[in-house]
Amino acid sequence: MIIGERKPIQEILDMIGEHDKILIAGCGTCVAICMAGGDKEVSILASAIRMARNREGKPIEIQEHTPLRQCEWEFVDELKDKIKVSDTVLSMACGIGVQTLVERYPEAVVYPAVNTTFLGLPEEQGVWSERCGACGNCVLDKTGGICPIVRCSKSLLNGPCGGAQDGKCEIDPEVDCGWQLIYDRLKVLGKLDNLTKISPAKDWSTGRDGGPRKIVREDMKL
């Protein structure tokens, strides 16, 4: 899922500026699960903003609403009435949710209250980590199901650099070396052979490097 993290309160207050009627729109899917922008976080942020503004002697009117998903037209339609009466919308969804609102409500001013950080999973309560860089050309079949693109700090495709130590990456002793993980996994699978094959230069054009991506499926079109 998409993992995000709420922006610092001061940055959010600066975005709101002098506005005094805002809507905080959460999202009930990924960012709710990673506790960055679900309905609970929406109400916490609303209280924090109210308190800060009261302290400044500039009270603010805040509406709260958290659709199940902020990245699909039918779900954001329910925000219509609240957006109409607000002069600013603070989106607590990922960057996709923010842009869905911008596209659906071109007259609204929408600001992001969350930093969208990565595609990952909750490893344990309170810990999230990255698993996929959406490179558009998955190689997990060759690497024992462990992604070299985002789990190796250098996105190496042919094995570890010389910087790994005790299974940790050269950038941080807290970070597992992705290639150590791949090696261990391939060993268990009895597929160490995979490591001897040279992976040719990757075609990055299926990723962000190829420009904005779009999938069009004629078979699915109405």
């Binding site: 700090s153 250098k154 190496l156 650099c161 040279i198 992976s199 040719p200 990055w204």
Partner: peptide
């Protein structure tokens, strides 16, 4: 680049050393 003098830079790694 993390330990260099421009840790905020973007890295490339279009190729790895083998490639």
């Amino acid at each position: 680049q993390k330990f260099g003098n421009h840790p905020q830079s973007k890295n490339v790694f279009d190729l790895d050393s083998i490639q």
